[in-house]
Amino acid sequence: MAVYVQRQLDRQPERTYVIEGDADGYWKLAQSLIHGEPYSIYTPPRRVLRMPGFPFFLAGAMSVVGEDHFRVRLILALSGAVACFVVYLLGKELVNETIGLIAAALTAVSPVMAGFSVLFLSETLFAVTMLISLWVLVKLSKVQFRVEDQFQGRLWSVLAGISLAVAFYVRPSWLLMLPLVVFILILSAKEHRTAALTRGLLIIVGFTVMLVPWVYRNYQVTGHFVPTTLWAGPSLYDGLNPRATGDSDMTFFDQENVLNSMSEYEMNQHYTKRAVEYARQHPGHVFELMGAKLVRYWKPWPNATQFKSFWVMAAVSVLFIPVVFFAGYGAWVSRDQYLLLLITVGPIVYFSLIHLIFVSSLRYRLPAEYSLYILSAVGFYQMCFSSRQGKELNPE
């Protein structure tokens, strides 16, 4: 796939990237890190435009293979292979090795996952870090609330906070998982609420310690507390404005050019307020947009015009539709296994809800599909093998 993508771009001298805007920004930020320049792009400088996780990863690849697009794509392809392996680990931990292998095989043959893995976009790296954080949370959930297991429980709690933060450094929308995880942990503990509260606090501590360098750096360059980025406001307005359709159209940002008269922080606040005000005044349009965004998120084929060839749409749909079907069956046969459902269905529902507000597309669903494939593997096994063998597939 790396060879194919690079050859296609080499035949089009006017194009450098498959998805220009975001990819170019990530590449330039990585170059600034490699050359020891300030972490910013554009004029006026945008210092808190992107989380640093993916640019740091790109910079690491550049430091090994140089600033060559094709060679860096090969490193990115390796991250896609790692994603398949982590799906295997998570499936094995949630159910057993058979399910882990089936789920990994499904991800390995997914044309969308293979394609995105070699683009200069954060989706695949985020999937890897998200899956690792989910694996750590599953390991934590299996540690009993016994005195002899206190150290192990506290260690996994800190690691859970750290792993959540690592994923957050790649995709800031993962931030809301922190309070959700702590809430679910305490709620499910029942008679061990005090011990669960301790673990929840340690998760928060692990996450916070990891977050300190980014927050401190942002305060140094903006004079404000900024835990994520200063692109959330324009992104929110992109999804909630008079011309919004559910698709991304950032032309308003260049046309209005508010950065000529505002700081980056003020610009972010400005667009956030405008988006919230528009939503208050036009609730009907907001609900209409939510429906459009929901359709865009769950559509089996790509929304972008450049990918709307018959063969691309068929290649994407021919795997995703059966995956959803098997996932539905897997959810039914596993309806009493709450941890499995939470880990496999939770992420894709989580991002679906977030993108009812922001713009939506297949691209934002993709990282969450990795864990859903585990549930698809359960459904596939139960439908195709367990009935023949006369036994159910139970967790080891």
Rank of each mutant, 00 (worst) to 15 (best):
V170W: 07
V170G: 06
R171W: 11
R171L: 10
P172K: 03
P172S: 05
W174Y: 15
L175W: 11
L176N: 09
L176T: 13
L176K: 05
M177G: 10
L178S: 12
P179I: 03
P179H: 06
L180I: 14
V181T: 15
V181I: 13
I184H: 10
I184S: 12
I184C: 12
L185V: 14
I186K: 01
I186L: 02
L187V: 15
L187C: 13
S188L: 14
S188K: 13
S188F: 12
A189F: 02
A189P: 05
K190C: 08
K190H: 13
K190V: 15
E191S: 15
H192K: 12
R193F: 08
T194M: 06
A195C: 05
A195Q: 03
A195P: 02
A196F: 03
L197E: 00
T198M: 13
T198C: 11
T198N: 14
R199F: 08
R199E: 11
R199V: 06
G200M: 00
G200E: 00
G200K: 00
L201F: 10
L202M: 06
I203V: 05
I203R: 00
I204C: 03
I204E: 00
I204M: 03
V205K: 00
V205C: 01
G206S: 04
G206P: 04
G206K: 01
G206Q: 01
G206C: 02
F207M: 07
F207Q: 09
F207N: 10
M210H: 09
L211G: 12
L211V: 14
L211K: 09
V212S: 10
P213A: 09
V215R: 03
R217V: 15
R217F: 09
Y219L: 14
Y219N: 14
V221H: 04
V221R: 04
V221S: 04
V221A: 03
T222G: 03
G223W: 05
H224P: 05
F225Q: 07
F225I: 14
V226L: 02
T228Q: 07
T228L: 08
T228W: 01
T228I: 11
L230P: 08
W231M: 13
W231K: 11
G233S: 11
G233N: 09
G233D: 06
S235T: 09
L236I: 09
Y237R: 08
D238Q: 06
D238V: 02
L240A: 04
N241Q: 12
N241M: 07
P242W: 08
P242A: 01
R243I: 04
A244L: 04
A244V: 03
T245P: 07
G246F: 10
G246Q: 11
G246W: 09
G246S: 08
D247A: 15
D247W: 15
